[in-house]
């Protein structure tokens, strides 16, 4: 396993926008350490000169007309999904 600190976990949680409880931080410290220990095995391979693979579609440059398509969805359909809305806008709590 790879040793990571509670501060490391808190930093990752902040990067990930997760407000974790103390118990979660303790559990994740162990789990993440174990998982990093497992995936570290890739470091033993020599990949000098190997190109990375980011996608496996065999496709490149898929073009389309620069034309707006709303896919049959209107503004109201999307606003209806928001936890709270008012006057045609998504409402959020005061955050400043």
């Amino acid at each position: 396993m790879t040793d990571i600190s509670r501060d490391d976990v808190q930093h990752l949680a902040q990067l990930s926008s997760l407000a974790l409880s103390d118990q979660e931080v303790d559990n994740l410290r162990i789990d993440i350490g174990n998982i990093l220990g497992y995936i570290n095995q890739l470091s033993e391979l020599d990949t000098t000169g190997v190109e990375p693979t980011y996608q496996v579609t065999d496709l490149e440059n898929v073009w389309r007309e620069d034309k707006i398509d709303d896919y049959g969805l209107g503004r109201d359909d999307l606003l209806a999904l928001a936890p709270e809305s008012k006057d045609g806008q998504i409402k959020v709590p005061k955050v400043l």
Partner: peptide
């Protein structure tokens, strides 16, 4: 990056 290279292999 290393993982994506090993993916190529």
């Amino acid at each position: 990056l290393q993982a994506q290279k090993v993916r190529t292999l």
